[in-house]
């Protein structure tokens, strides 16, 4: 029951407040309110579309309290003598700070100019009327008092020099209508198309078994990249490196290449003829490492370095370049 009563009281209070915004009320007693404001640092040179911001700081003695519903609302267009002034409230926010004997309200207002004129035009950030709830007095039996925030006067500049543009003389039928320029949207569209294009290229690259890029996906190019990642510290690295190069040779020849059938590789890929001696050395090293049970050539950093250089030689041969000669491993 008490809850219903409270709700009804709140609704009544809201209705009263709404009414309070429309009906003029007595001015707040002198000395009950102290105002300071931060206005734009200039009052000329504004153009249509500019946003003017002002901050109003009100120190209101207790028991007066701001009725927040009397603050102006966003989108409200001030009228002067029944005409729209062209100054529109774009944003409003406020803060409240309770002190011992007063309350400080800080109201931030942002207005946007939607009017212009051929010559400099005077304009005004309107004197907003806000109301406070205070004790009932003889003048204000309901305790409502009001305060008008001082206006801010400024000048709106014209968009062009008066008389310089005569639309009547520039009515060419070939000139297309002036449209809104959707630059941000266009930029986003271009960015999306670029991303889409790159994604498609990436997809093609993956679908093409990473081999369609020129000189990138061939067996020895891939083998060189894998060899670069070897740590050069583990004993099995030499075996791993030799296996990688063996795989690349087999992939190039399209059959398993051994020292007894390397001539078929040379016939199939004549660019490798320039490194025939190195190929022989490679197979000798491979025999020592993989098949010679008496050999101690398990890990030899020099051999590993040689294998890497040999792989680069093969990569050059694969690309049709003339590889440099290597020293024996």
């Amino acid at each position: 029951m008490r809850l219903i009563s409270l709700s009804l009281a709140l609704m009544l209070s809201a209705s009263l407040s709404a009414l309070a915004n429309d009906e003029p009320s007595p001015e707040i007693p002198e000395g009950a309110l102290k105002i300071s404001s931060i206005n734009p640092d200039r009052n000329v040179g504004f153009l249509m579309g500019d946003i003017l911001e002002r901050t109003i700081k009100l120190e209101v003695k207790k028991p007066y309290k701001l009725i927040e519903t009397t603050l102006p609302i966003v989108g409200y267009e001030h009228r002067y003598k029944g005409q729209v002034s062209g100054i529109e409230l774009r944003n409003i926010s406020h803060t409240k700070k309770e002190n011992r004997d007063n309350t400080t309200y800080e109201i931030h207002l942002a207005y946007q100019i939607f009017t212009t004129a051929p010559v400099v035009k005077p304009a005004i950030l309107p004197a907003e009327t806000i109301k406070f709830q205070g004790p009932a007095t003889a003048d204000a039996k309901d305790g409502l008092v009001q305060y008008k925030i001082p206006p801010f006067y400024f000048r709106i500049s014209p968009m062009a020099v008066f008389g310089a543009v005569k639309i009547e003389e520039d009515m060419s039928p070939l000139r297309q209508p002036i449209l809104l320029q959707p630059y941000p949207e266009k930029q986003k569209l271009v960015a999306c198309l670029i991303v889409l294009g790159l994604s498609l290229l990436g997809l093609l690259y993956i679908l093409g078994s990473r081999a369609w890029l020129p000189l990138m996906g061939k067996p020895f190019a891939q083998a060189s990249r894998r060899l670069r990642k070897l740590a050069e510290k583990k004993p099995e690295d030499l075996k791993t490196a030799l296996s990688i190069v063996h795989s690349a040779i087999n992939a190039t020849a399209k059959y398993s290449v051994f020292s007894d059938n390397v001539s078929e590789l040379l016939a199939h890929a004549p660019s490798f003829k320039t490194i025939e001696a190195e190929l022989t050395q490679f197979f000798e090293l491979s025999h020592k490492v993989f098949f010679d049970t008496q050999s101690t050539t398990n890990y030899d950093e020099r051999s590993l370095v040689w294998v890497k250089k040999f792989c680069k030689q093969c990569r050059d041969a694969e690309r049709g370049l003339k590889p440099a000669k290597l020293k024996k491993a």
Binding site: F258, S259, D260, H287, F291, D292, T293, Q294, S295
Partner: peptide, 11 residues
């Protein structure tokens, strides 16, 4: 040789 190579098997 004292170790067998793949080439020996091929032979």
């Amino acid at each position: 040789r004292d170790s067998v190579l793949p080439e020996d098997i091929h032979a």
